[in-house]
Design a protein around this nucleic acid. Structure first.
Lengths: 111, 111
DNA sequence: TCTTTCATATTGACATTCGATAGGTGTGAC
DNA sequence: GTCACACCTATCGAATGTCAATATGAAAGA
């Protein structure tokens, strides 16, 4: 029933998007490509997951969007981080570090 | 509205429960305590999250439950891993390794 | 003894959040 | 015209959180 191709952990998509945009502004599908690239294909974000997330994050004030042209002369909405977005990236990065450390510790416990 | 004390990433609770029970059978609240202990307080699983998860996992056939007595002579339901549960633990451990590696790589990219 | 109180142990109803699925629009390039 | 790019929306389901409830043994005091 539930083929679950992407393997994305809930709560990590925002972090990946923020990080992708911290390097440079990108349009929506560009974000997806960047994420796929830096995770070496581990995460493949579909449009239907991506755009709702971008809108959510724009409403939160983490992103600012502006219409522009893509590399191929197509209309595209470019997103960039706001100051609050950078702060959020720091928070989520720190949160990730804490969580992955804790789980790592849990998993290394031997019987 | 959303105070979110526990900071649990969706998808990691099952893993932590499986790992906790891999060491020894425990009753519900015992699982919660074990998790809190091995993650050094990072994760504090509330009853309302824990028991639905245990029931879900029992339905999946990963856990087997049996009534017994707790250390304090109270009725308590003890859970232990089934063979399928051990296999699931291996799967989820491997999944976690893959995911945390990918995110780690994404985060270490420099501008 | 009786009863009050507390910690243990479990359960259920409900809301929320997030990502997945599956569709749909518009447009430039060939 | 066809295709690939770029975006959008509606809707669903799974998983977790919140809150409240139940039941029971233990401990303490009248």
């Amino acid at each position: 029933m539930n083929l679950q191709q992407t393997e994305l952990l809930q709560g990590t998509l925002d972090l990946l998007i923020l990080k992708a945009l911290a390097l440079q502004p990108l349009h929506g599908l560009g974000v997806a490509r960047r994420i796929e690239q830096v995770t070496r294909g581990t995460f493949c974000v579909k449009a239907g997951s991506l755009f709702p997330a971008l809108h959510r994050m724009e409403e939160e004030g983490w992103l600012k969007a502006a219409w522009g042209e893509s590399e191929n002369n197509r209309k595209a909405k470019y997103y960039e981080l706001t100051k609050r977005g950078r702060r959020q990236l720091e928070n989520e990065t720190e949160r990730w570090a804490r969580i992955s450390l804790a789980i790592g510790r849990a998993l290394e416990v031997k019987a």
